[in-house]
Amino acid sequence: MTADRLPATAKRGWSLYDPRLAWLLVAPAALLLICFMILPIVVMGIYTFYTFVTAGVEEASLTVANWHEFFTDSYYHGFLLKTLRVGMVTALICAVVGYFPAYFIWATAFRQKWLLLLLLIVPFWISFTIRTFSWIHILGEQGLINVWAMKLGLIEAPMQMLYTEGAVIMGLLHFLLPYMILNIYVSLEGIDRTLVQAARSMGCTNAQAFREVTLPLSLPGLAAGLMLCFVLAAGSYVTPQLLGSGRDALFGNLIYDTIMGQLNWPMGATLSIVLFFILGSVAAIYTRFMGMSQIVKGLGG
């Protein structure tokens, strides 16, 4: 039956796949996104052109002074590069360290596989800040490692582990590893296992089957994990604040200090928009080539 032959009442009513219904259903989420994400970013964007007068005071007279300062001051560029470097190193370590547990969970014949997945999620039940603080009691001078190393006679004086870049990366790994493992695991779960068997039956060794079949097919998950870990690490603020010294600060700490310490909101807004733009670009490039579906799958477990 064509549309023009439908009775008048049916034409007025809504079908299940009516675009109007789709818009209606998506409207609350879209409204929330506009009010709590798009608008604040726009406001922040406008704020970058405000004039800073003194701590806590700014004027609505528009200026490009904040952007000029950002583009001409190497202090900001140095921290931006450092943040990208720490983000990349963290993401790469997450990938190397995270692949093995993900592969193990996928390949194991253990019947209670859900238990292994649960172990991955358990850390999320404890506050992120408390998890980060726990490293102080492990890496500190009076912490677990130093105390036992000294008791065993391995070292004479405590090692400086806390308040270093290594401690910051360690804290970030602790926080991000589950994201990486879940992404890789979900990708592995999507592989048709008969492909591996086929490769084996055609003469591949286990290592070759892994290299030629399993690894390439799990790359989308690995890439999603890399992107997620990089973006989260590069945008982190609490971990470097708690586990690092001033020198180990990341760009997020610069933003915090500018807004909360110097009370210079226009400059803080400028730095925030810069970080948003850079991390957003990374996510956009990833989406262009890989699509968002892999991340959604990974986050969903």
């Binding site: 701590a55 202090y75 921290f79 001033g246 020198r247 600060a249 610069l254 310490g261 210079n264």
Partner: peptide
């Protein structure tokens, strides 16, 4: 305040 923030971060 700005200068101290920078020195604290290694400047």
């Amino acid at each position: 305040a700005k200068q101290w923030d920078r020195i604290a971060k290694g400047a």
